[in-house]
Design a protein around this nucleic acid. Structure first.
Lengths: 142, 142
DNA sequence: TTGATTGCAAAGCCTTTGCAGTTCT
DNA sequence: AGAACTGCAAAGGCTTTGCAATCAA
């Protein structure tokens, strides 16, 4: 873990950024929470340090995303959900009926990725992919 | 066209709703614009009638969506885009590099739909599907 | 030292809501 | 007449921004 830290911390500095307690706390929070909105990240961060501001969370998440240490996806109408970059790649299915979120492996969306690549030369961002629809527990739409 | 009109107008009334000039104008605007945000719909509507309010546009789009006369998709960070329900089904590809939007036929996403159906019993809403990534005109991310 | 970063407060989008007046049926 | 609908204004949720103070290197 210290090896990991060293790595991204070096990367940060290499780009002229600075390592701050807030940045470490935000990254830790995303890694601990797994799926979290900016507001949830803030809450988690504040359990360890006080005075951290929501605007810092937004700025930090953006920066961490640039470093590919976190990613985000839109799972509904509200705030986006942030995931650790270290988590295995996955796409999301969201059920309109019950709001259930299902994580799917890249292999499941590989057929789509292939078609888009070959037919449109389009490179899909799988980690950002969210498919809306209806799950088996919910009645078909009428 | 009057036949079409008659049909949805009957449907409206059958559900206890009323036919108002605003509702006709909003539907016409979506059909004329093809892809439009609520704000764009308002602008178009105001070319024909004055005094129409943005809140009416929102309320009307929601109602028309319930009647499946329009659908919406999220093509970026801002407001959603509304499409006529009469348009052929399609999904969207959005390029992060140049913001280009590519419409794809249902047949292109059929492989995905099949996998999700068979493996997760998940029924995909193709018209709402937006895939983010990078198009052939743009450089691969570094 | 000094430029990056933060907290705070204000503003900005986009969308929803309460309500009184209006309109469709 | 009476319920549905609209315009208006205000509020609400989420996010960004300007700026002075603070902090990492």
């Amino acid at each position: 873990m210290s090896a990991e830290n060293t790595e991204w911390q070096h990367e940060l500095r290499a780009r002229g950024y600075r390592l701050t307690p807030q940045r470490q706390l935000v990254l830790e929070a995303v890694e601990e929470l797994g799926h979290a909105t900016p507001e949830e990240v803030l809450t988690e961060v504040r359990r360890k340090a006080q005075g951290v501001n929501i605007s810092t969370v937004y700025r930090t998440l953006e920066l961490l995303e640039g470093l590919q240490l976190v990613t985000h996806a839109h799972l509904g109408h509200g705030a986006p959900t942030y995931h650790p970059g270290s988590a295995p790649d996955h796409a999301h299915l969201v059920c309109r009926g019950c709001d259930r979120v299902i994580e799917v492996e890249p292999v499941d969306v590989a057929p789509l990725v292939s078609v888009l690549e070959s037919k449109y030369a389009f490179r899909t961002d799988v980690r950002h992919l969210t498919v809306f629809g209806e799950c088996d527990r919910c009645e078909p739409a009428t």
